[in-house]
């Protein structure tokens, strides 16, 4: 399936977005290769903005669902624009420090009136499993997206929210850490050294 077909199928309520995305990126031929490339870019962008490794991100099992969610809500074109911008920033800052890259990400992506809210929503998707309704001024400016309401992508997306991993805790109601585990200090996973102390 090519991206037009993919997008069309996503618009059919009966279809499960995550399985569709999986089928799309595993597809044969040029269309499959193309979509795989976009999905790879999506993950690369997600790694950059969540500070979780690709292994960690794929370890949630939610990559395809989030990929599909973004496309389903705001369409293909805007995601491609976002990812192309991201790729060009990465190409441009090859070998530069994180600080330089972050400055460009802020100026051209997060501070872009059209792409910024989408970029932030992708961050929020990974951390919470929730799609948050875009700011009203965004919809006024760039046209309302019919599916743009606040929703939890799935029960499992909730469970796999990286928010909980970040703080060494677990989502309420799932991934319990065992009787009495709460009496121990939390084990907060380490991550890249580019964090600045707030």
């Amino acid at each position: 399936m090519n991206k037009t077909e993919f997008y069309a199928k996503l618009s059919t309520p009966a279809n499960d977005p995550a399985s569709l995305a999986l089928a799309a990126i595993q597809g044969d031929g040029e269309a499959g290769t193309y979509l795989r490339g976009v999905y790879d870019q999506f993950l690369a962008f997600s790694v950059e903005v969540t500070a979780f490794s690709r292994f960690d991100l794929e370890g949630t099992g939610q990559g395809e669902a989030y990929f599909a969610t973004v496309i389903q809500v705001v369409g293909y074109e805007i995601l491609e624009q976002l990812l192309d911008t991201f790729t060009s920033i990465i190409n441009q800052t090859g070998g530069e420090s994180t600080l330089v890259r972050n400055d460009l990400l802020r100026r051209r992506l997060f501070g872009n009136e059209r792409l910024g809210p989408i970029a932030r929503n992708i961050v929020k998707l990974w951390f919470t499993g929730n799609w948050y309704q875009l700011p009203r001024n965004w919809s006024e400016k760039f046209g309302p997206a019919p599916k743009d309401v606040t929703f939890t992508v799935s029960a499992n997306a909730y469970v796999e929210g990286l928010l909980w991993t970040t703080i060494g805790a677990h989502p309420a109601g799932a991934k319990a850490q065992g009787y009495g585990s709460w009496a121990n200090p939390p084990r907060i996973p380490e991550f890249g050294s580019d964090a600045v102390v707030r």
Binding site: K175, A176, Q177, G178, Y179, G180, S181, N184
Partner: peptide, 11 residues
């Protein structure tokens, strides 16, 4: 068992 092994299983 309780203090370390059980949390490890959950891990």
């Amino acid at each position: 068992m309780m203090r370390a092994a059980v949390p490890a299983m959950f891990d």
